[in-house]
Design a protein around this nucleic acid. Structure first.
Length: 290
RNA sequence: GGCGCGUUGGCCGAGGAGUUAGGCAAAGGUCUGCAAAACCUUUUACACCGGUGCGAAUCCGGUACGCGCCU
């Protein structure tokens, strides 16, 4: 079976998708695949709201703690790892459930992305030294219809030049797949994110950050995430701890906004505000295969 | 009571007679190997009243509020 049955749950940070996934796993003999660009890192537990040890004891989680906090993980690698996990889970007779908020990661599996050329770090280094205008000139040769979003984005221009062509968008959904989206009202989301941040502090976020900084420094991959990087300003005396906390809430909210924008354009997502309704939809999918 | 200084969009903050300061926040958006990233778009303000100018947020006078100093 090339495309085993797959349940996918998406949503913004704090939407409750993780707990829904956990429940679904328990009820349907499922295993979870985390589609999250941060929980792949070891040592980043509190700030990424990684499933707890207790949760991991109840249900099997995949793609957690797969790299050290100073390593780089990326979408292409996720795609491979996730597909492998899906095969493995389903050949063991279980139901794969993919949950996460990293849109690119999710879509790479959902739409079977062909990422194209492998990154060329030498070329990238060379291109990074160029100005935006110089990159534009090269990029416009490849595609003269680039919009202002891309034309101002150095990183994307570099990738475009590296690949040498515009990759064709693919929007045919993976077979045997149901995609559920969890959404919650905005003011409710804010409340949850505030509570969640508060909880992280109580669970010892600050200590986790200190340990990671001691080991990898402020410039490491681990420290680039929300809930971590904000502490640098505290350590430099620029922000008080309260301001750090507020800043984390704000950045998380901004991130949630970007996630919402990302998922909004996917027409295959069935949106739910009530997890119970979402569960019914999954039940239906599992019994009818539809 | 007298003298001086200040009053800029949600906040900070430049400028200063006729083209957009900028930053932050907010809202919307982009997205195929860094994605909790990177980036795009939008929001037309100068306390109030009068005066002088073709033209004032920008100059002059007064009013209010704030700050400082003096008696």
């Amino acid at each position: 079976m090339k495309f085993p049955r797959l349940v996918v749950i998406v949503g913004e940070t704090g939407s409750g998708k993780s707990s829904l996934a956990h429940l679904l796993a328990l009820e349907n003999n499922g295993e979870i695949i985390c589609a999250d660009s941060r929980t792949v890192y070891k040592g980043m537990d509190i700030g990424t709201a990684k499933p707890t040890k207790a949760e991991q004891a109840e249900a099997k989680y995949h793609l957690l703690d797969v790299v050290e906090s100073n390593e780089i993980y990326n979408a292409a690698r996720f795609q491979t790892d996730a597909n492998q996990a899906i095969q493995q889970i389903s050949s063991a007779g279980k139901l794969p459930i993919m949950v996460g908020g990293t849109g690119l990661f999710i879509d790479s599996v959902l739409f079977d992305f062909d990422f194209g050329h492998v990154p060329n770090s030498e070329l990238r280094a060379k291109l990074s030294a160029l100005t935006l205008d110089e990159l534009r000139v090269q990029a416009l040769v490849i595609d003269e219809n680039l919009d202002s979003n891309t034309l101002s984005n150095k990183r994307r221009l570099i990738r475009l030049i590296e690949v040498g062509e515009v990759v064709e968008q693919q929007n045919e959904l993976r077979k045997n797949t149901i995609v559920l989206g969890l959404k919650i009202p905005k003011n409710e989301l804010r409340k949850r994110i505030e509570q969640r941040t508060e909880l992280m502090f109580r669970q010892g976020l600050r200590k986790e950050v200190d340990e990671l900084v001691d080991e990898y420094g402020w410039d490491s991959e681990a420290m680039s995430g929300i809930g971590y990087r904000e502490f640098q300003d505290y350590s430099e005396g620029k922000l008080s701890m309260t301001q750090v906390k507020n800043s984390i809430v704000k950045n998380t909210l901004n991130y949630a906004k970007r996630q919402r924008t990302w998922f909004k354009r996917n027409p295959h997502i069935e949106w739910f505000e009530d997890p119970v309704e979402a569960k019914k939809s999954v039940d239906n999918f599992l019994t009818t295969g539809q």
